[in-house]
């Protein structure tokens, strides 16, 4: 059936459009309300959960880490703001801010020795010593989380992975792949020689020397000419176990 043109036809069409719009708005409103309701339920449940397990979250690093994971999955960041119920409930924001400040402190204090690159394990160790009151309660996961929060400062705090180890960088040095490979090689003994780098990585001596020189200039490496074989060794304080005792009285 063909609609005939005319004022009546136009009015009908307009009325139909209005109807559709109204209906659409209604559906959207119902959906939003439902969402809101679900969110409220979820939020109250999460609050209940957090309240119930408050002590676990505070004291047990493994539990804390899982709690964070769960929050991340549903898109909640308990650290996003220090205000609001998470902070009031758990004081969890303060905890990480405190860690963050202490991490910056440690990185600065050890920088002259390690050139601004520190082993995550060593950092945790120093952090625990500093927080004597709750020794052992800070996990690597907590460290990583606190460092993640430091990124907003734009000061170049970053975690880099070298082989299986994680290193925390507190200076804006760009380490390329060559440097990383050398650091990885150095993890075995704490040092490398030019020969070793050439042999193990199949590099030309120019490439090896160039990379090592950069690491020296950045303060990440130190030379050692004292071995009886007369070969220069390049030590890396950031990967050497001995550096864990620097600045710490055992």
């Amino acid at each position: 059936m063909r609609r005939r043109p005319g004022i009546g036809g136009l009015q009908t069409a307009a009325a139909a459009r209005d109807q559709y719009r109204l209906l659409g708005e209604n559906v959207a409103k119902i959906k939003t309300d439902l969402m809101k309701e679900q969110l409220a339920t979820f939020r109250s449940q999460l609050e209940d959960f957090a309240r119930k397990h408050k002590n676990d979250i505070r004291k047990n690093p493994a539990f804390r880490s899982q709690f964070h994971e769960m929050c991340a999955k549903v898109g909640v960041d308990p650290l996003a703001s220090n205000k609001g119920f998470w902070a009031e409930l758990l004081g969890i924001g303060d905890f990480y801010y405190e860690l963050g400040v202490q991490i910056v402190d440690i990185c600065l204090a050890t920088r002259p020795h390690n050139g601004g690159l520190i082993n995550l394990q060593e950092l945790c160790h120093l952090l625990r010593q500093r927080r004597k009151s709750d020794r052992g309660v800070v996990s690597k996961d907590d460290c990583l989380r606190a460092i993640g929060k430091l990124k907003v400062l734009g000061s170049g705090f970053e975690v880099i992975s070298v082989a299986k180890r994680k290193l925390v960088r507190s200076v804006p040095t760009e380490l390329n792949k060559d440097h990383n490979e050398i650091l990885e090689l150095a993890q075995a003994q704490g040092y490398v020689t030019v020969e070793e780098v050439e042999r193990r990585l199949s590099w030309t001596s120019g490439r090896a020397i160039d990379a090592l020189d950069t690491l020296l200039d950045e303060g990440l490496a130190m030379i050692d000419d004292g071995h009886q074989d007369g070969k220069r060794r390049y030590w890396f304080p950031c990967v050497s176990p001995i550096s864990s005792s620097i600045g710490v009285d055992s």
Partner: peptide, 18 residues
Amino acid sequence: PPFFNYPPYFTLQPVRDT
């Protein structure tokens, strides 16, 4: 001190800051 056991501290370092 701990640095006394770290070999490179016995070689004069070429880089100024270090």
